[in-house]
Design a protein around this nucleic acid. Structure first.
Lengths: 210, 210, 210, 210
DNA sequence: CATGAATGAGAATTCATTCAT
DNA sequence: CATGAATGAATTCTCATTCAT
């Protein structure tokens, strides 16, 4: 539809933009928008502040660009939930994908959390538009499964929130988890343990079955 | 031996300190440490910036005081988990308390999240000390229940993380939840729904029982 | 002549004023006028800032009071120079008195130096009035001695400056002297050495006599 | 080995740094460290405060730089004292150099005095290290001269202090000297008079020779 | 006499951004 | 493309002083 006028960019430009965005993700995630200094992004990206501002005219422009790149990756897993698939397999796969995201892109997860916690000033539109639509669509899938007797009849929103919360927790609260367990989601064995426990609890529940 | 010398404070001092801490909680939770201006705390607390600094010598001092007051309330619910009690009831009660905390003190929850996400610079000691000890103690309770056949044998840490994550999510990601559902944990009916869904899923699981 | 309306003061008042002036001398000498905080004077004097300001309405008032008390003691030795006396004895006695002052009131010496170095904003009147008159009077004594062949014919002003400079140096540059010699004018033996060397050099000169 | 990596500086940088240091010397000498406002240094140096802080990150950094530049010039004269030379000539030359320094750089002299009077917080190392070594070396020269019968046997340290004190006095106490004599060391004739009187007194003594 | 409470005018930095080269 | 130079608008914190009790 909308032919996003991608400006022509040289290879150097592409590389530098990428560097900047990567560095920015790191500091925005850690220190929040206000807590991040353009200087630091620049030095993390290995260039001068002036040069950085040649690529992105302002701090908030960088922030927006980082967030924009983020949202797609954050949303992707949910899209894969297949109405035709087996609930057990689908949900386990979904959880796994989300855990992988937390493992591979913890900073992205934290930045997203940060943005939402501050009232989602930059991505409110996305939340209320595309995200809301997607979630409603997937909620319908869950309701459908429930009607078909494949899963219990629970509120699909709370269910989705549960999956988001638990999987993202491993990225967002990593320092706490590290302090308590000495490990974290980046570790393969730890991640397997998390996946098993989460899917078991979600699917089978904690109480012994008859 | 050493009686922690609580400095004597007049009523005015008590009142003003309380006001400041309350106002500070709000802005720190929303904008993070760096994003918060002392000016704003002062005006939220209804006093001049200078007067505020008469009570707390610096911004970071306020921050520390807020966090210190926070931790107790954040930790309290877990302490109540009773080894002698019935797992179903105990866990449901725990979830309910945590949800209430999210409902009543969403800002405290967010500030805690914020602090942890930034690497817990101020409360690392608490996490690695008292919190770690408490969590290990309660993990033992869960293992004990499992051995007694009262609950399934799942990793107690992941179980605790699941409860933390899901309950806190309603406070920390409130803007997102609000955008998607039009409501939030502050709403009684919403909170009941959350509690039911959460405890049902946790205890019984999603899949239908035979 | 001028009946300085000494306000009636209770004993407590007298004591507190004295305490304040003493404490103030210490910090003004060390940190200068701007570098001194009223707070610190108060705490050094063992009272609250508010109470201190009950005695002296402002910082500069304290400063003036300290300086006023100082000048008399600083000037006193010169007054004792007796035109009728033997130059050798008179000058040695003068040097000794100045060295004693440096030993006993190094802070007073430093504060005086400080004030002068900043352009003597507070005591310019004294310098240009009473001090100038006194110095001119004593210069005349020296000229008189010279005419009488009791001392060489040297510029009396430079001679006086030499004595001031050398004797005050031991107080004003005490940290340097301490660093270089490990001792200082407060030490009796050190002071004797200084007195001997100074008076010997001043009176006899460095070069061997025939 | 380790070549002190002098950061490369553009001409503009050199010029601005020099301007700043010069302006800073003036105000630090006059008002002390605390009494000096960055604002004022900047306006004296003819630039904006922000720009000044682009060159020196903080007030104390400026202060340190000024002091560092100072010490060399302050020390230089003493280095020239030649053990092989004639005492009379050497000492007269030394006094003359010191008087010239007081005449040409009175602010430097006052700043040095100020720093020492405050306890030499920034240059203690230099005093206890290089300066101490140099002074001891020159004291040895004086002792040597005394043994050779070229000068009287006086404590070399007090002799050095005497020269320092008297020569620096003309810079440090300039306002007082001005108030008393109407002139000062900056004036050529005045300086000549000071030099003559000082060297005469030091070398020949005040008392008439037989 | 003495202290607690409150304030406002600074003063030092910080930092995003603009300008020049 | 890239960097150095410069700026001005915040923002934190200091400190003498006033007010109330």
């Amino acid at each position: 539809m909308s032919v996003d006028e991608e400006p022509r960019r040289t290879r150097i430009q592409e590389r530098n933009r990428a560097r900047i965005l990567e560095a920015a993700l790191g500091t925005f995630a850690r220190f929040g928008y206000r807590g991040t200094r353009v200087d630091q992004i620049a030095s993390d990206a290995g260039m001068s502040k002036s040069n950085l501002l040649y690529y992105f005219g302002s701090k908030s422009e960088i922030y927006k660009a980082v967030l924009a790149g983020l949202l797609d990756r954050w949303l992707a897993p949910l899209r894969t939930l297949d109405p035709e698939g087996d609930p057990r397999r689908e949900l386990t796969a979904y959880i796994e994908q989300k855990l992988r995201f937390s493992a591979n892109e913890p900073e992205a997860s934290r930045l997203f959390a940060n943005e939402v916690m501050q009232g989602a000033p930059m991505i409110r539109d996305v939340l209320e538009g595309p995200l809301k639509a997607l979630v409603e669509e997937k909620a319908e899938v869950l309701r459908h499964w429930a009607k078909a007797g494949k899963i219990r009849d629970v509120d699909p929103y709370h269910l989705i929130f549960l999956i988001w919360a638990t999987t993202q927790h491993y990225a967002d609260f990593a320092p706490q988890i590290e302090a308590l367990t000495g490990s974290g989601i980046h570790d393969d064995r730890f991640r397997k343990g998390a996946l098993e426990t989460l899917s078991a609890l979600l699917l089978e529940g904690l109480l012994p079955r008859a």
